[in-house]
Amino acid sequence: MSSQLTVTIDKLAIGGAGVARHDGLVIFVPDAAPGDELLIEITTKKKNFAEAQIVKVLKPGPSRRTPPCPIADRCGGCNWQHLTEDEQRRQKQLMVQETLAKFLPGMDLPFLPLKESPLSLRYRNRIQPKYSRGRFGFFARRSHEIVEAKDCPITEEKLTNEFAKIKAELDKKFRDTKETQRLEIYLDQSETPKWLLMGEEKEGVGFSQVNRFQNEDLIKTVLEWSEGADYERIFDFYAGGGNFTFPLAEKYRTQQIVAAELDSKLVQKAHEKIQAAGSLNKRMHYYLSDVASFMRRTQFQSKDLVLLDPPRAGADEYVMKALAQGSVAKIIYISCHPVSLARDLKYFFEAQAARSSSKPLKLKKIQCFEMFPQTDHVETIAELAVDTP
């Protein structure tokens, strides 16, 4: 096979690359758009697939556009700015649908329309730029070279307005230092811009979701989907700082609220919030624990609501099988990676089928949320509940 080929991009894959086929070989091409006719060069060849880079765009696909950011073709932060927003959303929905269908063959997948982000630019309230010897910006794609940035169009202007001042302070302290400085710039809970070097103690926890505008709708959806049963206990696993825990406690004012989170700083902040609320002291329990260990000490019941919001790696096999053995009323799973979501649902339904439950949970709703426009990342919510008469 020649190292240079002409291909047409069919669709986009998880990770953001375009997918092309040549003589039965699947080829992944970063920075591609659906419908692109490309001259590509193979960079890596494996048994079942290959990776390539674009040599020339021979004919652009209908959704290819000029990126809104002038450094988008070099910066490693956004990998889909060359696509129209409509196509980004279409591809995200398609990726999640195809991934779940692969892991759950034959199962009904009741997808709702994707929820658009209120903002496709200026939505991030937390970013991690880099600094080295007078260069302030972001790592280039697949590199530790810094692409200089005076602005970042996906970041809230309250933060980007601070770039020049922050760079001036870094110039004074680190201009002659060889090591690359890694920063976090964020809005705190009062929407005040703050910054620090990675590894430093934060004075306070910022927003729990980097897209606070879309996070409001995410919380609202979780609360709406939680309805429909008479719960006695509500569990929030991988609870973070309580992004969902406290809204659930506000909605369900008589139930026991139980949260488990492994980050000690987030648990401490949650405890402070519980103490400040006063009324939550007796019915909210916020534990410092990994979820699997916590589940080994917990007996689930038929009137329990369980919320899962794991990191990209998802929940592990034990967690899903334990839930399948527990006969809970409802599970709401918030996922930030389609593959881990699909795998975890497979674990759950296989374990539930082996148990032959009299009231099995079924996949009732699935909805994608656009939390990170201009990138391939997608948030997905799935509801598992018993059939109601």
Rank of each mutant, 00 (worst) to 15 (best):
Met1His: 14
Ser2Phe: 14
Asp10Phe: 02
Ala20Cys: 07
Ile27Gly: 00
Ala32Gln: 01
Ala32Val: 01
Lys46His: 11
Leu58Ile: 13
Pro62His: 06
Pro62Arg: 05
Ile71Gly: 09
Ala72Gly: 09
Asn79Ile: 14
His82Thr: 09
Leu100Glu: 02
Met107Lys: 07
Asp108Leu: 10
Lys115Glu: 14
Glu116Lys: 09
Leu119Ala: 15
Pro129Gln: 02
Lys130Ala: 12
Arg133Tyr: 13
Arg133Gly: 04
Arg135Gln: 09
Glu148Met: 08
Glu156Gly: 12
Leu159Phe: 11
Asn161Cys: 12
Phe163Trp: 13
Leu170Arg: 04
Phe174Gly: 01
Arg175Val: 01
Glu179His: 09
Thr180Met: 13
Thr180Arg: 14
Leu187Asp: 07
Asp188Trp: 06
Glu191Ser: 15
Ser208His: 11
Val210Met: 15
Trp225Pro: 02
Ala229Asn: 07
Glu232Trp: 00
Asp236Gln: 03
Ala239Met: 04
Gly242Thr: 03
Gly242Arg: 02
Asn243Ala: 10
Leu248His: 00
Tyr252Ala: 08
Val267Thr: 07
Ala270Gly: 15
Ala277Ser: 11
Ser279Thr: 15
Asn281Lys: 09
Met284Val: 14
Tyr287Asn: 10
Ser293Gly: 06
Phe300Ile: 05
Ser302Pro: 05
Val306Cys: 07
Leu308Asn: 01
Ala315Phe: 06
Glu317His: 09
Tyr318Cys: 04
Ala322Leu: 06
Ala324Pro: 01
Phe348Gln: 01
Ala351Asp: 03
Ala353Arg: 15
Ser357Phe: 08
Ser358Cys: 07
Leu361Trp: 10
Leu363Glu: 04
Met371Phe: 13
Phe372Lys: 05
Gln374Ala: 03
His377Thr: 06
Glu379Tyr: 07
Thr380Trp: 05
Ala382Cys: 15
Thr388Asn: 10
